[in-house]
Amino acid sequence: MANEPESVHFALKKVDLSKQLIIFIIVAVLVAILFAFGSLMAAARIEDAGRSKLLFMSVAAQMAFVGVCAALLAFHISRMTKAVLKAIELASKK
């Protein structure tokens, strides 16, 4: 089993790299979304016939975005809570 540390090491390295890439992509997407919302709001400030529609659309998009983020966060927190409770249960079995 001479190659045992290598395969684990390479796998972890690959996972770390993909994690970094995912974080970078998420940050880039978030920044792009913020800019998109900003430009939408800026466009909605200009007085014209479609202003109320644009304002409504930008507010709805922001609310949907915040809702999705909140749902993801709630899911993650509930998963972590479950994991912690399970770990406590396992520790008490020891």
Binding site: A83, V84, L90, A91
Partner: peptide, 13 residues
């Protein structure tokens, strides 16, 4: 083993 299950949980966190 319980130890392995705990590693799983810790890794998930």
């Amino acid at each position: 083993s319980i130890q392995e299950a705990q590693w799983v949980l810790r890794a998930q966190c």
